[in-house]
Write a protein that binds this DNA or RNA. Structure first.
Lengths: 174, 174
DNA sequence: AAGGCCATGTAACAAGTTACATGATTAA
DNA sequence: TTAATCATGTAACTTGTTACATGGCCTT
């Protein structure tokens, strides 16, 4: 949030939440509720400063100099280890409890979703590169692109790993 | 948890938590505390059944027939959309606030961690394949392996995307 | 059989989600 | 100028994390 505020502030809670979706939504999520709560806390600790109450009891917040320092030291510290939670791997891991047909259906849905994401990143990557966007931003898009490509190739190889998924062939027990 | 219980139950909370780490820890996290709380709830809804109190006030839980049904219908429903939260992309996204030197250091640390993971998955994949493990299990390992390979190639291409990261060369402004 | 170390569980807190309330703005 | 819609914020609930308590077990 400090990072966002330093780029798009002064802004109100709702706006900040939208900007988060736009600017970092591809690899970070936060709900509006979180934004408001956190904004309150950050103000209390002096890292952001809120202006007067405007329409719909909204207030605009900006990062303070102390906030900039905190942001910087957060960045300096380096990212925490990522928490990976990939629900479809749960489905796969316990996949023997499903019929192969149903599992294949689920995987197909999954594939559709991720093909769309892949296209999205491909487009975004092309556009941003063409438009000479901030390289740091492009770097994050590249990650998304590579990631979706990986998902695709994993799906492709799956039937070779899990025999019950290969299409219409009978699997004989010799 | 139901999936785990159906494979490793009857087991107490602590044991279940350990099994979770072992069996699905590579793509799903849960803390012991969560396990205990959830076990309590699942018992209340009749999806698991706890035995008598043993040493250290521990109890062993098993999945009930109702639980098996619930598990199955959860699997049938298909995985929810995954939530991606990749902290290093935040660091990158706001990377212009760091010196290129510091950023490179952070990326190096990141690379070390992930190279280790890549090796881990490579090994695991080889072992499991050799030992003719459950293909569903292997499929999840394959994902880990592909993912880490992707991280590696992203890191490799990064300097080409973000000029300030390319090593010792001077970047002239023509 | 005493001391230290694990195994097991609990409680308090923090972060994340969902559902709701309400005051502006716009369009008919 | 009323109704519909959207912007903004709040409250209640759920999930996730951290820190703590304590009782068995093993080692000497």
């Amino acid at each position: 949030m400090l990072g966002l505020l330093s780029q798009v502030g002064p802004i109100n809670g709702n706006g900040l939440s939208s900007q988060a979706d736009i600017l970092i939504g591809d690899f970070w999520t936060m709900t509006r509720s979180q934004v408001y709560r956190e904004l309150k806390d950050l103000e209390k600790s002096g890292l952001v400063k809120g202006g007067p109450v405007g329409p719909r009891s909204s207030r605009e917040f900006s990062i303070t100099p102390t906030g900039e320092i905190a942001l910087n030291s957060w960045l300096e510290t380096g990212p925490p280890e990522e928490v990976i939670r990939f629900p479809i791997l749960l489905t796969i891991r316990f996949g023997s409890a499903l019929t192969p047909q149903r599992l294949r259906e689920l995987l197909d849905e999954f594939q559709v979703r991720h093909r769309a994401k892949h296209e999205y990143y491909t487009q975004l990557n092309a556009d941003m590169t063409a438009a000479n966007h901030d390289p740091f931003e492009i770097a994050t898009v590249r990650f998304g692109l590579l990631f979706e490509a990986t998902v695709a190739s994993w799906l492709e190889e799956l039937p070779r790993i899990v025999p019950s998924l290969s299409s219409d062939i009978e699997h004989e027990q010799p």
